[in-house]
């Protein structure tokens, strides 16, 4: 595996750890599945707007701790993009990967 795929795998682990923490702190109907296709935004998602914002803030904090880098995942314009980074875990993962230097 090259560095890029190692990093991708590591970030996915971080996202899953955030999902674990999210599931600990939320009632049954708001819990998330640990899967690449888990929807984060929209009608199919278990996250409402507060849940999504809270989740994304945790993503930013976790990336900062693990990569010593400030990245901006929350961007109101991205909410409007079809097939944007908040679509599911996989699109978020790709978006983060692009942001990491």
């Amino acid at each position: 595996m090259n560095d890029k795929s190692n990093t991708k795998e590591f970030i996915l682990k971080l996202i899953y750890s955030i999902i674990d923490e999210h599931n600990l702190l939320n009632p049954e109907d708001l819990k998330l599945e640990k899967s690449l296709k888990t929807s984060l935004f929209g009608n199919e998602s278990n996250l409402d707007s507060l849940g999504l914002v809270n989740f994304l803030v945790e993503v930013e904090n976790t990336i900062k701790i693990n990569f010593d880098q400030d990245i901006c995942v929350i961007n109101e314009e991205l909410f409007l993009e079809e097939n944007g980074p908040y679509d599911n875990v996989e699109t978020l993962l790709d978006y983060i990967l692009k942001q990491i230097k």
Binding site: L24, L25, N26, P27, L30, L50, G51, N54
Partner: peptide
């Protein structure tokens, strides 16, 4: 958010 933690 606190409500959700308590409900969980």
């Amino acid at each position: 958010l606190l409500k959700r933690v308590i409900e969980s």
